[in-house]
């Protein structure tokens, strides 16, 4: 991937948001057989910005969840620009429990600018819906893999992003706040977004260095230029990591080991200093 080493963080943001970049349903369509989409949260509605369903992946029965962006204005209006609402997260939670019941590994495709920030989503408990999903994923009793395929936008991404393995496509980004929001909050100037993109360390290679993600899926060329190749590489990465997790599960005390490893993975995240005790 020598071509990509010259890309700035802002270049990657642009690529991660490219309208022709493959979407969650493109990955599912190419990688899975017999996908049956399962709709609705059983309370309010069906959120089209977050899709889920059962599928067969290289011989295995799995559950997939994904943030779904559109490709044009009409699709984006239908998909709310990929910004999930509480009813989307509650559908996801329902399907996580479904996965647990039937021992289906969970594969989550993350591509979200941020959770929907509208007043109706607040009324419906956006924060609580996200929190419940993080809580459920923390000790969900199946192997879990999350893949950032485009934008990993803040808490809205983390609601699908707590997993045994967190992978990123090479040109995806994963942010605590979008570069534009970071720039307006910290630089008091939204036009500083490219500088913020660099300072916030949002690219896959930087996050791998920090050990905040587990692996990078190469894009050569960028996924919108050769979609089939990027998706196939993603499939191989899923298969590799899923096999490793299945091996853990097959061992003695397999499920407990899987959950302990997940606990330890999150337990150690953070950097601090310790002064001498007073």
């Amino acid at each position: 991937m020598p071509a990509n080493t010259t890309m700035t963080p802002w270049d990657r943001v642009t690529v991660a948001r490219h309208p022709q970049r493959p979407r969650a349903l493109d990955f599912v369509g190419d990688l899975c057989d017999d996908f049956i989409e399962l709709h609705g949260d059983r309370q309010l509605s069906d959120d089209r910005a977050l899709i889920g369903g059962v599928a067969t992946f290289r011989g295995r029965s799995i559950m997939v969840l994904g943030n779904q962006k559109g490709r044009n204005t009409r699709e984006n209006l239908e998909r709310n620009f990929g910004m999930a609402r509480p009813q989307g997260y509650r559908k996801a939670l329902r399907l996580m429990r479904h996965a647990e019941k039937f021992r289906l590994p969970l594969i989550n495709f993350i591509d979200i600018p941020g959770a929907d920030p509208g007043p109706t989503s607040e009324e419906h408990g956006q924060a609580m819906a996200i929190a419940d999903n993080i809580h459920a994923l923390a000790d969900l009793e199946v192997p879990t893999i999350a893949i950032v395929i485009g934008e990993g936008g803040s808490g809205g991404a983390l609601a699908l992003g707590v997993a045994d393995r967190v992978l990123m496509l090479e040109n995806s980004v994963y942010t605590v706040a979008s570069p534009e929001a970071s720039a307006s909050i910290l630089w008091k100037d939204a036009t500083q977004a490219p500088a913020a993109a660099a300072a916030m360390r949002i690219t896959a290679p930087e996050l791998l260095d920090f050990e905040l993600i587990d692996a990078i899926i190469a894009e050569s060329p960028p996924a919108h230029e050769d979609t089939a190749k990027a998706i196939a590489a993603t499939g191989d990465a899923i298969e590799q990591h899923l096999s490793e997790l299945e091996d853990v599960l097959a061992g003695e005390y397999g499920l407990q080991t899987l959950l302990d490893l997940r606990y330890q993975k999150y337990r150690k995240i953070g950097r601090w200093q310790e002064t001498s005790k007073p």
């Binding site: 993080i134 808490g155 983390l158 994963y174």
Partner: peptide, 13 residues
Amino acid sequence: GLFSLLQMAKTTT
């Protein structure tokens, strides 16, 4: 940055 976001996961876990 992302260290901060992932404290949500760490504390909830």
